[in-house]
Amino acid sequence: MAEFYVHTELGRLAVRAIGDGPPVVLWHSMFVDSHSWDRLIPELAGRSLFLIDGPSAGRSDRMRTPADISACARAAVTVVEEICRRTGVDRVDWVGNAWGGHVGLELAARRTDLLSTLVAISAPTFPIDDAIRRQINTLLPIYRLIGPRGPVRSAVVTALFTDATRAHDPSAVAIAESSLRLSGRAMVPAIVTAILRRTDLEWAARQLTCPVLFVTTDDRGEWTAEQARPVAECMADARVVEISGARLIPALEQPTATGAAIRRFWAEVGVGTWVRLPHGSSQP
């Protein structure tokens, strides 16, 4: 594994490089960092994985003031261009979860030359609704005061994971809690950036020319397969798959099913290399 930093308008972003093969760039969800992909890494063998820590997450620089998804997309352009330079390719495959999915949507719309495919996981194309906005605005002052502890920690873990995961998969919860502790109060500007300032991205979805996979889950009411399919039907080349037994981060809760869905998508559109599914494996 190698790690490097890319200077962007949002500060230095840390990137972990793992594996060999055609490059895949991954940007995680809010409240976690690039280690939220660790369980997915074995499922994507045969690819070079470049795992970004978003601003204020992991080993990346802390944000001093909030930005927006457009600024994150511009930072992503800088990172992707550096990865292309390092690997000698002209485009990459993008996998983004929630925050990373929204960044990928705008990136793909504004720079059609940089992405071969886009996987957007748990990434609604519409802004947050009023109920979630009220909840976030209620928690932010507490977050600023005490950091990701107590009621803040409880609310975040509940938002990220199903009841079953919280009860029976402590290592998944530990990955999220480790990221929360590392980021501390510095996560607040990122929350404003990625959640409160999340805008309608259906315009971006409609402009995409690369193949797209929307990954939804069966335990997130904000973005269901039923909501994603009408958006996909209006796009040039998009499809939807639902992962069972997951809420916001299926790569943590259901890595095998998530990896299978991504590999199958890549196989369908004929890009990169991937590991053939074992005989008898269930298809998403």
Rank of each mutant, 00 (worst) to 15 (best):
L115C: 12
E202S: 15
A76Q: 01
P124M: 12
R197C: 08
T199P: 06
D129L: 08
V24S: 10
L118S: 09
Q207V: 05
P66W: 04
D200I: 00
A45F: 10
G104E: 01
L252F: 00
T125F: 00
A76T: 02
Q254L: 05
V77H: 05
A205P: 01
D61I: 07
A98H: 13
S56I: 07
R206Q: 11
L145I: 00
A205W: 04
Y143Q: 10
T65C: 09
G46I: 02
L51C: 08
P284C: 06
I18Q: 13
A232L: 06
G101P: 04
A190M: 14
S244Q: 15
I249Y: 06
D33Q: 10
S36P: 09
L107R: 10
S178K: 15
A2H: 15
L208C: 02
C84H: 04
L180K: 09
A204C: 10
E202P: 05
D68W: 03
V80P: 04
T158E: 15
L49E: 07
L13S: 11
P250Q: 09
L252I: 15
A257L: 09
V92D: 06
G280P: 05
S179T: 07
V6W: 05
G259Q: 07
A257Y: 02
T117N: 10
L140Y: 08
A172C: 13
